[in-house]
């Protein structure tokens, strides 16, 4: 066997180190998924999805995740509804109308960048303080019924805070999608005699639709995965305080104005860190949450693939 030179030994050593780090990252990722599966799958019986959490020291009596799962969906949908129009409007303005030279528009861009870096816990605490002001009492059930302060915690409050939190990210992805529409298509639109807004509406937005949907789905993922904002602004009740039968339309407003939980706060609460002390249930919920996040990611990847197939 030929003697390896120092250079080759060194090269092999460092390449091996790189392979080891890749293997560690893969292993940790697999480890998390396997840990969820191994400890969580046991909890996944039909009743897990059809019963609400029960306060109990006995894990077998701790109920299921019906209310938190519904809470995640309610919060995600209402948060996206709140953020959609403002973010789409801002993205169109930034991509199509903005005069990069103007101070105001540059300030907006810088501001969005700064807002994107602010940790969600700051938003949560900010939201709690803002929406506890008496003028926002209509958004949350006042705890004691006094008019001097609002409770400041409800699905509506949570959705609004989430909207502010994910706005910069959603705007960024949407703006990227809008900017990615080829110049040739815009010119074709103008050459047909469309005004700027009609061109945007008829040509740019339909072409950017997959990217806009991607922004929405990524935004859903951020809402579903966040804990700090939910913990601080949706309240710590495991079930809906507004009405137990949240699925009945006449209960929707009370539910939105009431407190509740999502999968993330359920996990936090049921883990050894919270008071629920039902780690099996926490793992079950974590497994469901992870599956949700993976499904959202897969959907985004699918949209991307559709787009690249179309482009060919």
């Amino acid at each position: 066997m030929a003697r390896l030179s120092f250079a080759h030994v060194r090269s092999r050593f460092w390449m091996a180190a790189c392979w080891v780090s890749a293997a560690v990252v893969l292993a940790v990722c697999a480890g998390i998924v396997l840990a969820m599966a191994a400890r969580g799958i046991g909890a996944l019986e039909p009743s897990f999805f059809t019963t609400d959490p029960q306060p109990s020291f006995e894990e077998s009596l701790a109920g299921g995740i019906r209310a938190p799962l519904a809470g995640s969906v309610i919060l995600a949908v209402s948060g996206i509804l709140a953020v959609f129009l403002p973010s789409l409007g801002a993205a169109i303005y930034l991509a199509e109308y903005m005069d990069e030279q103007k101070l105001g528009t540059r300030a907006i861009r810088l501001g969005l960048e700064v807002l994107a870096g602010v940790p969600s816990v700051v938003f949560g605490f900010w939201g709690l303080a803002v929406f506890s002001q008496p003028i926002f009492a209509f958004l949350s059930d006042s705890a004691g019924g006094d008019a001097t302060s609002a409770f400041g915690r409800s699905f509506l409050v949570g959705a609004l805070v989430m909207a502010v939190h994910i706005l910069p990210f959603v705007v960024k992805v949407m703006e990227e999608a809008i900017r990615a529409v080829p110049r040739a298509l815009r010119e074709a639109g103008y050459a047909l005699g469309l005004t700027k807004w009609r061109m945007i509406k008829r040509v740019v937005l339909p072409s950017a639709a997959p990217g806009i949907v991607t922004a929405i789905v990524l935004g859903l993922g951020l809402i579903v995965g966040d804990t700090a904002i939910v913990w601080l602004t949706v309240g710590g009740t495991m079930t809906m305080s507004g009405a137990d039968a949240w699925w009945l339309p006449h209960n929707w407003l009370p539910v939105l104005k009431g407190t509740g939980s999502t999968l993330t706060t359920f996990i936090f609460y049921s883990s050894p860190a919270g008071e629920g002390n039902a780690p099996g249930k926490a793992y079950g919920a974590a497994f469901v949450l992870l599956a949700l996040v993976v499904a959202l990611n897969a959907f985004v990847a699918w949209i991307g693939r559709q787009r690249s197939i179309k482009a060919q």
Binding site: V25, V33, A35, R39, S271, P272, N297
Partner: peptide
């Protein structure tokens, strides 16, 4: 794997951290 890791909610990292 990297994308999945970036999508895992922090509470799940907390749960695995706390129990493993």
């Amino acid at each position: 794997a990297v994308r999945l890791l970036s999508g895992v909610p922090s509470v799940i990292f907390g749960l695995v951290g706390l129990t493993v």
